[in-house]
Simulated assay, not measured.
Amino acid sequence: MVFSVVVKFIHPAAASLVVTAISGISFLSMSNAGYMEIKGKHIKYSKMWSQADEEQSKIPSKRGMFIAYTPAFLAGFASLFLLRHGDFRFTLLRFCVATHFFKRLLEVVFIHKYSGWMDTQAAITISLSYCLSAATLIYAQYLTLGLPEPEFDLKYVGVLLFLVGICGNFYHHYLLSKLRSEGEKQYKIPRGGLFNKVICPHYLFEIVGFLGISCISQTLYSYSLASGTSFYLVGRSYATRKWYESKFHEDFPKDVKALVPYIF
């Protein structure tokens, strides 16, 4: 019964063992990464990563994040010109993939303020992961061309969710960038927007954006990527709130949740 309902929302794509395998691996790896965040094992690029005892090769965080996002953007951007044929859904997906990573690059260059370092291996690993995700999203959609559409068409709902997600994410990244003036390195408790309700509203809107992409695509891979990303950001937001509590103690407002206002 449940399966018969679920298939109404999924594109009946051509069989591909590669895409199916990547879908499962993506979901499991992202979910595990979220669990590791909760356990205190953080990816080596954030404020929660203790860099004092690390001997690995490190690069400035700004350069590391630029490396992380560039290949995925190029994959999405190139697909708009190299894969000219296709339906409206295929065009929408490629445009959203390219836009998502272009926005991230713009934020790296013009919005975010970086004060730390990033493990070089982590930068390369993240870069390969993002690039594989972008390419697989596009390839999985390519396999649907010429096949029947899903019984329930969610692409316009997806466009709305994507726009809400990318705008909300950008706005809260902008608020974060204004916390510290030029030259300041100390961390502060974020204020304004949904920061008054949750410590990671930028993660909440990123989840909304990925849900939008999955609704535009409606492939097994897009759903698995959105689900895995959501699980990871749930763990990440939990760890972030815990970090702020430990750093600011009594000054951290207890009614501010991790990700979802009033709930979590």
Rank of each mutant, 00 (worst) to 15 (best):
V2N: 02
V5T: 14
V7H: 08
I10Q: 06
I10C: 12
P12V: 07
P12Q: 11
A15S: 12
I22A: 01
S23F: 08
S23Y: 08
G24W: 06
I25A: 04
F27W: 15
L28G: 13
A33M: 05
Y35G: 01
E37L: 05
E37P: 09
G40Y: 06
S46Q: 09
W49C: 08
I59T: 08
S61C: 08
S61L: 09
K62R: 14
M65V: 01
A72T: 10
A75L: 07
A78W: 03
L80D: 09
L83Y: 10
G86T: 04
D87F: 02
F88L: 15
R89N: 03
T91G: 15
L92A: 07
L92T: 00
F95D: 00
F95Q: 09
V97F: 07
H100A: 14
H100Q: 15
K103H: 10
V109A: 11
F110R: 03
F110V: 05
Y114D: 11
G116M: 03
Q121S: 15
I126R: 03
S129V: 12
S133D: 14
T136E: 04
L137W: 07
P148D: 08
E149W: 10
E149S: 13
E151N: 12
Y156G: 00
F162K: 00
G168F: 12
Y171T: 07
Y171H: 10
H172G: 06
H173S: 08
I189A: 02
G192F: 07
G193P: 11
L194H: 04
I199S: 08
Y203H: 12
G209D: 02
L211T: 13
G212R: 01
Y221S: 03
S224G: 09
F231R: 00
V234E: 07
R236D: 12
S237Y: 06
Y238T: 14
Y238D: 01
A239P: 04
R241C: 10
K242P: 10
W243E: 03
K247M: 13
D251Q: 13
F252G: 00
V256A: 01
V260Y: 01
I263E: 09
